[in-house]
Computed example of a mutant assay.
Amino acid sequence: MVNIKNIDSKDFSNFIHMKLREYNDSNSPHHKAYRKEGEIKVLNFIAEDNGKCIGGIIAEAYWGWLNIEYLWVDENFRNNGIGNELLKKVENIAIQNGCRKSQLFTFEFQAKAFYQKYGYRIAGILEDYPPESSYYWMFKNLE
């Protein structure tokens, strides 16, 4: 009989992640190739003021896509073009590395309007996540 139980273990999480990657690799040449040396371009940039981090962006480029994971600017420095500079920096490098499209996720209370201002369109909406808000999947053609 199968026994199912709760387990709180980083090793277990890594094991399941590895097993899913193995399955993906065996069924999709894109998944297997994307982990080869040089296939993923990591694009992480920091914005500093007097040596202090006031913003940053974390992104990856692969499969012809820019995938923006995080973009943050300190509240005291918002609306000064820093977010735009960070976004444009990674978009330009992604284009130089063959990316034609960009994607990201953002909550309604975060930066949806900011991304729309720079050409991102809504691809999907998860409503009431978190409750009384929404979660947006957005994309942009970089060409």
Rank of each mutant, 00 (worst) to 15 (best):
N27K: 15
N27M: 07
S28M: 12
S28Y: 14
S28P: 12
P29N: 05
P29H: 02
H30A: 13
H30T: 07
H31P: 00
H31T: 03
K32F: 15
K32M: 13
Y34Q: 15
Y34W: 14
R35Q: 13
K36E: 15
K36S: 12
K36I: 10
E37N: 14
E37C: 13
E37L: 15
G38R: 09
E39I: 03
E39Q: 14
I40G: 04
K41V: 07
V42L: 14
L43V: 02
L43C: 12
L43A: 10
L43P: 10
F45C: 09
F45M: 08
F45R: 12
F45N: 08
F45S: 11
I46V: 14
I46Y: 12
I46K: 14
A47P: 11
A47C: 10
E48F: 03
E48V: 01
E48C: 07
E48A: 08
D49S: 09
N50E: 14
G51L: 09
K52G: 09
C53I: 13
I54H: 04
I54G: 04
G55L: 04
G55W: 01
G55D: 04
G56I: 02
G56K: 06
I57R: 03
I57N: 06
I58M: 11
I58P: 02
A59W: 06
A61M: 09
A61W: 02
A61H: 00
A61E: 08
W63F: 15
G64I: 09
G64M: 15
W65F: 11
L66N: 02
I68E: 02
E69V: 11
L71G: 11
L71H: 07
W72N: 13
V73C: 09
V73P: 08
E75L: 09
E75V: 05
N76A: 08
N76S: 06
N76M: 02
N76R: 06
F77Q: 01
F77C: 02
R78F: 07
R78L: 04
N80V: 01
N80I: 01
N80K: 07
G81V: 03
G81E: 03
I82Q: 02
I82A: 04
G83F: 07
G83A: 07
N84E: 10
E85Q: 08
L86E: 10
L86H: 09
L87I: 02
K88G: 07
K88A: 13
K88L: 15
K89V: 04
E91D: 01
E91I: 03
N92E: 05
N92A: 00
N92C: 01
N92Q: 02
I93H: 01
A94D: 00
A94K: 00
A94W: 03
Q96S: 11
Q96F: 04
N97T: 01
N97E: 08
N97Y: 02
G98P: 06
G98N: 07
C99F: 08
R100Q: 08
K101C: 04
S102W: 04
S102L: 07
Q103W: 12
Q103P: 09
L104F: 05
L104G: 09
F105G: 12
F105P: 05
T106K: 01
T106H: 04
F109D: 05
F109K: 03
Q110A: 11
Q110L: 14
Q110G: 09
A111H: 06
